[in-house]
Every structure is written in structure tokens, then in C-alpha cells.
Amino acid sequence: MKKKNLIITCIFFIFFFITMFLSLDKNKIYSTRDYVGQQLADVDLEYFNKNSIFNTKKISNYNFTLINFWASWCGPCRKEHKNLMALSENKNLKIIGINFRDKQNNAKEFLKEMGNPFFILTKDTDGKKSVNFGVYGIPETILVNQDLQILKKYIGPLSLKDVREINKIVKK
């Protein structure tokens, strides 16, 4: 009886300590990066330049689409912009920009200065539309396929590694 209790106690603590040890390594900052595979939401977005609506369902017209959330006031967006410009060269990929909580003029200036990689440009002035995409900060980029399935999420500025990965995926 005593021996049994001893073994049970030891096993419990061994399990506990191993888990605690393994958890020391883990990154505690939450990211939705791995939250992929689901369908893109059905959202109406205001075009940046005109008064009409772009609905996300139209994305099924394209092979692969990259949805990029950005703003002129966002430093990391500035950093990743050249990577977006590079990606805009890819024939298999269409880039949709969603200008997030920004002023029209500032956004225009930004694109004039850094170039416009966006096939379609929309805006989300109060930021509420971004919630439908599960976005919680910018820059954030979502890769979607023809079936409106979310393939990849990139939290933070796109790196060269991300660009290579995207190019590889859209080749198929």
C-alpha cells in the first residue's frame, strides 16, 4: 500500500516536472500564425478610390490571392513593402491591399513613394472589417487559394523567406 502510493506520487511529479521543463522553451506570445485551413470570411470591403463594394467572394476568380493589411503610419509595413512589390511580379498571384485605419492622403503618399503592388486596393477605416479576417495587428498578410481556403498567415512584416515560400506555393 505504501509502495503503491510512493510510485503513484513519484509518477505524478515526474510527469509534472517534465511538462514544466518542456514549457520553459515555448514562446508565450500568442500568434494566429498556425490558425489556417479555414474558409475566408464573406466580407464587403470599400474600394479605396471609388464608392463601390468589393466582396471577398470575388477572390475565387483568381488562382492565388494575397491579402495584405497595411497603413502609412506603420513602420514594419514600410519595411516589407519592397517584398510586396517583388511578389506583385508573380503572374500567379493577385495582391489585395486593405488600408487599415489610415488617412486617404497619407496612404496615397505612401504608395506614390514606395510603389503600388496592389491589384485591388480597399480600405478599412475603422478597422472593424479586419476582425472578420482574424487580424489583430498590422502588417498581416493572408494567402488564400481559389477555393477561398486560407493557406498561410504571416504575422508581422513579410520576410524574404516568406516571399520564397509564397512563390513556391503559388507555382502549382
Binding site: R101, D126, G127, K128, S130, V131, Y136, G137
Partner: peptide, 13 residues
């Protein structure tokens, strides 16, 4: 935070 303000607004809607 900005994110919280947005979520508050969305929940309100």
C-alpha cells in the same frame, strides 16, 4: 489598446 477598441466596437455592433 487599439485592438481592444476595435473589438469593443464590433461587439457593440
Amino acid at each position: 489598446s487599439e485592438f481592444a477598441q476595435i473589438i469593443k466596437s464590433v461587439v457593440d455592433d
